[in-house]
Simulated scan of single mutants.
Amino acid sequence: MPDTKLPHPSDLKTIGLTPFIYCSNQPLFHVSAGVPIGDALSQASDLLFLVKAFAEDAAYDKKTDRHAWGAYFLTAMSKAVIDDVVKVISYPKQTSSK
């Protein structure tokens, strides 16, 4: 029976299979493959920080919806990054040591 070893989390990278923002039922954007998951999650955290600020602004500024739309698109981007990372960590490739 081969000895299996899971990759170290710092070696994991995004797989780029997660689309976001659709136009005419086609994804306009997707997460890029090959980004270290730590960097990807850090970026998602920064995006979610902005989402929180935009959502708060939207709650107080009833004259415009620009903050709400900004929060909407940033949320879609953040969710896609997190979903892509979850795909990587949920189904890690097992490597066999020789």
Rank of each mutant, 00 (worst) to 15 (best):
Y22T: 14
Q26F: 01
S45M: 11
A59H: 06
W69G: 00
D84T: 05
K93S: 09
L74G: 10
P19F: 09
L6G: 08
E56Y: 11
P2N: 03
F54N: 15
L6H: 02
L50Y: 06
D11Y: 07
I37T: 05
F54G: 08
S97T: 06
P9W: 15
A33L: 01
G38W: 08
N25W: 12
D11F: 04
Q94L: 13
S97K: 01
S10W: 11
Y72A: 10
K93I: 02
V35L: 03
Q26H: 13
S42E: 15
L50I: 01
K13Y: 01
S96W: 04
K98H: 08
Y22E: 13
F73W: 14
V85M: 05
K63E: 15
E56K: 15
I89F: 04
P92M: 07
N25S: 12
S78I: 00
L17T: 12
Y60I: 10
T75P: 00
F49K: 15
A68F: 09
Q94F: 03
T14I: 07
A68L: 13
A58W: 11
K93W: 07
L28R: 13
D39K: 07
L17M: 13
L28V: 15
L17G: 14
D61V: 12
L48P: 06
A33Q: 15
A44F: 04
A53T: 11
K98Q: 04
P27C: 08
A44E: 07
I15S: 13
H30P: 02
A40I: 01
A76Q: 14
F54V: 04
K63W: 13
I82A: 13
S45Y: 12
I37D: 08
V85S: 01
S90K: 10
K98D: 06
D39I: 12
Y72E: 10
K63F: 02
I37Q: 05
H8R: 15
S97M: 04
K93N: 02
M77N: 04
S24T: 04
P2C: 00
A40M: 07
P36S: 06
A53P: 00
I89L: 04
T14R: 02
S96G: 06
K98I: 09
A68V: 00
G34I: 08
F54Y: 15
D3P: 00
D65M: 13
D39C: 06
T4I: 05
V51C: 12
S10R: 14
L47R: 11
T64P: 03
I15M: 12
E56Q: 14
K63L: 09
D11Q: 14
I82Y: 00
